[in-house]
Design a protein around this nucleic acid. Structure first.
Lengths: 185, 185
DNA sequence: TGTTACGTACAGTTTTTTCTGAACAAACTT
DNA sequence: AAGTTTGTTCAGAAAAAACTGTACGTAACA
C-alpha cells in the first residue's frame, strides 16, 4: 500500500495549504462584519471544486448543519456566496461569488455606508436636541456647554460628509478610474 | 427649590443629547476594530470640557478603573485619544484627538493595511506550498486540484494588490486631492 | 527613607456570543 | 395521501469576551 500512503500524504498537504489561507481569511474577516466561523466557511466553499450543499459543508467543517445554515445565510446576505441550481439535485447548492472586487467591495461599501449614515443622523439628531436646549435653558453654564458640544459635533459632521463622498467613490465605481483593477488575464 | 429642579432637568437633557451620539458611535465603532465599550469611552472623553483622568472616566461611566485603563489604552494605540500633561497634576490626563480626519482615517488605514498585508502573505505562502506540491506529487488528480487552487488564489491576489493601492491613496493623503475635505471654518 | 498615589497584571466572575440537537414546516417523491 | 428529504427555528449548552477587585510595582512626595 505504499502508493496509497503517498496519496493521502499529498492530499493532506493540499489540505494544509488550503487551511493556511482559510485561517488567515477567518482572522481578518471581522473587518467586514462577518464572524470568523463564517469566514472559514467562505474559505471552504472557495476551494471547493463543485458547489457545496449544507451537508457537504457540515462534513468538511465538522460542524453542525445548523451552523452551516446560519453561516451561509450571512455570506449570502453579504453577497459573498451565491446559490446555484443543478438539475436533479434537490439540495441547495452554494458557490462563492468569483469576482473578489465585486464581493468584497460590496460588503465593504454596504457596511460602511450603513454605519456612516447612522452616525450622521445621530449627529444631526443630537444637534437638534442641543439647539432646543440652548433656546430653552435659563442657565448660562448649560448654554455654553451645549454650544461647545455643537462645535465639536459640527467638526465630526464634516468628517462624515467627507466619508460619504469617499464611499460614493466606491459605490459608483469611480474608484476604478483612479486605482485601476489589476488583472493579469 | 424650583430653579434647582430646572437646572438638573436641563443638565439631564444635555446628558441625554450627548448619549444619543455616544450610543451610535459605540454601535458602529467595531468597524474600526474597537470594542463598543471603548467606543463609549471615546464618546465620554469627546464631550468632556477638560482632559480626563482614569478616575474621572470611571466615575462618568460607572465602570471599574481597570476597564478604563484597558479601554483608554486601545484608544491610545489607535491614536484616537492622546495623553496630555498639566503641571501640578500627577494623574494621566487624556483628551480626544480633535481632528477626525486624522484619527479616524489613521485607525482605518492601520487596521486595513495590517489585515491586507497578512492576507496577502497568506496567499503567497499558500501559493508556494501548492507549487511545491505540484512538483512533488505523482498523482495527476492532486496536481490538477492544486493548479485550480493556484488560479483562484491569483485572482484573489489581484484584488489584494488593488486594495493595497487603495490604502496607499489614504496613507499618502492623495485621497484629499480627489475628495476634498469639507471644512466650514 | 518611609509613605502615599497611581496605573496595570492577573485570576475569577459575569455577560455575551456562538454552537448544537431536537422539533418543526415546507417541498418533493412515490 | 403518506412518507421522505431538506432547511430553519428555538431553547439550552459550550465557548469566548468583557468586566471587576485584589494585589503589586513604580514613581512622586515628605
Amino acid at each position: 500500500m505504499r502508493s496509497n500512503d503517498n496519496y493521502s500524504k499529498d492530499s493532506t498537504k493540499l489540505d494544509e495549504a488550503r487551511n493556511r489561507f482559510i485561517s488567515e481569511i477567518a482572522k481578518n474577516i471581522h473587518l467586514y462584519n462577518i464572524t470568523p466561523s463564517a469566514g472559514r466557511l467562505y474559505g471552504t466553499v472557495f476551494f471547493s471544486k463543485e458547489p457545496m450543499t449544507l451537508d457537504d459543508m457540515s462534513k468538511a467543517m465538522a460542524m453542525s448543519k445548523t451552523s452551516m445554515s446560519t453561516g451561509i445565510r450571512s455570506l449570502l446576505d453579504a453577497h459573498m456566496v451565491e446559490r446555484v441550481w443543478e438539475r436533479g439535485i434537490r439540495k441547495d447548492l452554494y458557490k462563492v461569488e468569483g469576482d473578489w472586487y465585486k464581493s468584497f467591495s460590496n460588503v465593504f461599501i454596504n457596511r460602511w455606508k450603513n454605519a456612516t449614515e447612522l452616525n450622521m443622523s445621530a449627529i444631526q439628531e443630537t444637534k437638534e436636541l442641543l439647539h432646543e436646549l440652548i433656546q430653552e435653558t435659563e442657565y448660562e453654564e448649560i448654554r455654553n456647554e451645549a454650544k461647545e458640544d455643537l462645535e465639536k459635533l459640527t467638526e465630526a459632521e464634516d468628517y462624515y460628509y467627507w466619508l460619504i463622498d469617499v464611499i460614493a467613490l466606491f459605490e459608483t465605481g469611480k474608484i476604478f478610474d483612479i486605482v485601476p483593477k489589476r488583472s493579469r488575464k
